[in-house]
Amino acid sequence: MATAAHAHEHPPPANASSRVDARLLGIYIFIASEVMLFGSFFTAYFFARVVVQNETWPPEGFELPVYLALVNTIILVTSSFTMHWALQSIKRNYRAGLVAGLTLTFLLGLTFLLIQIREYTRIGFAPNDLAFGSTFYGLTGLHGAHVFVGLNLLAYALIRAVRGHYGPKEHEHLGVEIPGIYWHFVDVMWIVVYVTVYVV
């Protein structure tokens, strides 16, 4: 439908009425919404654990691999630092650092996901074992899904990085910064999930 007639039609540039970049603001608002989604799952968890009085939690016969999960937590936290490094590198226009950082982050995230799947298959109870099982798989699964999305974003950023996109200027590396923000969110969220589900 691209008729040459309109080929060079452009809108008047919009007035920037805020110092915040639209795309950054966008991702922050989106994350706010994501937090609420986790909120609903935590609410369900709260009902199953607190409102319904259980004599023990986890109910007997159930136990969680707290230490394995701790290892996983450490992996994910590390990945946040590598992500940060990637961003800093491109800001200093150090491309190798960018690619290396993204690759590392991606691999760490992938490891996390694989370990979690392994945990699922070995954990010995299923989502349909009591509300405990449901809420456990609910929260960890929701988070796993977010890790998966995050990995996709990282992959895209990586592809572009390898193909030589991005640069040191503010608007040139948003494509790295934004997946980064999302990744940090996924990371922080995991710490909350870990503490509530495994530790407390």
């Binding site: 709260f46 009902f47 607190v50 409102v51 319904v52 009085q53």
Partner: peptide, 8 residues
């Protein structure tokens, strides 16, 4: 068998 109506 459930708990009382109390709670959140």
């Amino acid at each position: 068998t459930g708990e009382e109506g109390g709670g959140g």
